[in-house]
């Protein structure tokens, strides 16, 4: 464990909590893609299949449970909460994310560390996390609504990406057997897609602030 990875885990968790609290506080999920949140929940469930078989540390196990619970809570809120679900942009959130799931599954069956059930699903979750933001990117381009995608959420999501890239650089420089290629390359793709999301977020945020009536 290094400080970059710990900071990355913390900012990742904070970004999820910020989004969950925003949805719960405003009882609204307008502008948020349920499909992206479903993909994130699927990422954690398929990545942490080893929760009950491999014990690495208390921190590792506790964080796995927390990530699964918080990402599932967001999906539950958007699908089941009687007030929140009314504000879901169902007509705009139409990205066919099933193709992302199938594509990542095929890729994981081809490129993985070891051909075991757990390893294939681990690689699947790594690839899926990289592309999971696409439905949210498309919804943002269509709706331009950033009310619930607070600046803090976008900031912590970006910080998570930045810290993890620093973590991989640190591990590459300090460890003999660097074998995080799947995580590293997929993480770079994820960061590039995040940068694209950030660009559209900034454009939408600027347009919205221009639209504000002069107080």
């Amino acid at each position: 464990m290094n400080i970059f990875r710990f900071a990355g885990d913390m900012t990742h968790l904070i970004s999820i909590l910020v989004l969950l609290l925003k949805i719960y506080a405003t009882k609204s999920c307008a502008g948020i893609s349920l499909k992206t949140q479903e993909l994130y929940a699927l990422v954690f469930v398929t990545r942490y299949l080893d929760l009950f078989t491999d014990f690495i540390s208390v921190y590792n196990s506790v964080m796995k449970v927390v990530f699964i619970l918080t990402s599932s809570a967001i999906v539950w809120c958007m699908r089941r909460h009687r007030i929140v679900k009314r504000s879901y942009d169902q007509a705009l959130d139409t990205f066919r994310h099933l193709f992302l799931v199938l594509g990542c599954l095929v890729l994981a069956l081809i490129v993985h560390d070891k051909f075991t059930f757990q390893e294939v699903f681990w690689a699947f979750s790594i690839y899926l996390e990289a592309v999971a933001i696409l439905p949210q990117l498309v919804l943002l381009q269509r709706s331009g609504n950033v009310d619930n995608l607070t600046g803090q959420y976008v900031f912590f999501l970006g910080a998570y990406r930045a810290f993890y890239i620093l973590n991989w650089i640190y591990r590459y420089l300090t460890e003999q057997h660097f074998r995080l290629w799947i995580s590293c390359i997929s993480g770079l793709v994820q960061t590039a897609l995040y940068a694209d999301f950030f660009y559209y977020y900034y454009i939408s945020w600027k347009n919205n602030s221009k639209l504000q009536l002069p107080s």
């Binding site: 885990d9 990545r47 590792n60 796995k64 560390d113 390893e119 681990w122 074998r179 995080l180």
Partner: peptide
Amino acid sequence: TGDACTHDEL
């Protein structure tokens, strides 16, 4: 070795 397949990153 064993650690090759345990993923210690979240």
